[in-house]
């Protein structure tokens, strides 16, 4: 939640986007959760976020400040930028988790830090072999890829269920260990997502004769 700050214009304490005393627009909070005045949680009420997004869009829109001071116009522009970026980042659960991890000091997608489970690597390797065969015109690989697609889509669904359970657990405890686990799962998800995309691409380019 946004802490109380001192209004640049009238010097009164305030919290939020506008001074409670004089009503002047304030520089936007840098953190998206603070900006939307939402708890830093991984499971957010999407409808509430949307509601706040539209309400703030109206109140912070640069047109509203067209005849105000330069400083107020600048804050309105800054706030609108945070509003849009923040909405994009928080709307999608995966983006939101990545944002929260980044804000908590984790490197996202840092390759060295996260070993991929060996069984997954084996599967990825086999899959790549099949992809290579299919690309070189060996149609025998097609059924294998169909199987792989089914398997990896199921894997992605499993990962998503795992993630939402971990999200809920994090919101309860705000434990850092859980964030570490979540980062690992997100990395695996990215890996699996790339594989699904690769397989779809290979299968769509393949025309059975």
């Amino acid at each position: 939640m946004a802490a109380e700050e001192i209004c640049w214009k009238c010097g009164q304490l305030f919290s939020g986007h506008f001074c409670n005393a004089c009503g002047a627009i304030q520089p936007p909070a840098a953190n998206y959760f603070d900006f939307f005045e939402l708890p830093p949680h991984l499971n957010l009420d999407a409808a509430e976020l949307e509601k706040r997004f539209y309400a703030l869009s109206r109140r912070l829109h640069p047109d509203v400040f067209a005849r105000r001071s330069e400083r107020e116009q600048r804050y309105s522009l800054d706030a609108t930028a945070v509003l849009n970026d923040g909405y994009r980042a928080l709307r999608d659960p995966i983006n939101r988790a990545e944002y929260l991890l980044k804000e908590s000091g984790f490197d996202i997608g840092e390759q060295k830090s996260n070993p991929v489970p060996p069984e997954l690597l084996e599967e990825v390797f086999e899959l790549n072999m099949a992809l290579e065969d299919l690309r070189s015109g060996d149609s025998d690989a097609a059924p294998q890829l169909e199987d792989a697609r089914t398997k990896f889509v199921a894997m992605r669904e499993h990962i998503d269920r795992d993630l939402s359970a971990k999200f809920a657990a994090y919101d309860e405890s705000e434990s850092r260990e859980l964030l570490t686990e979540i980062r690992g799962v997100l990395n695996r998800r990215r890996y699996v997502r790339n594989l699904v995309n690769e397989v779809e691409k290979a299968l769509s380019g393949y025309v059975p004769n």
Binding site: G109, Q111, L121, N194
Partner: peptide, 13 residues
């Protein structure tokens, strides 16, 4: 040795 990079999907044996 089988290793991989989650980000780019590289896999190396």
């Amino acid at each position: 040795g089988m290793v991989g990079a989650p980000e780019c999907g590289d896999v190396m044996k």
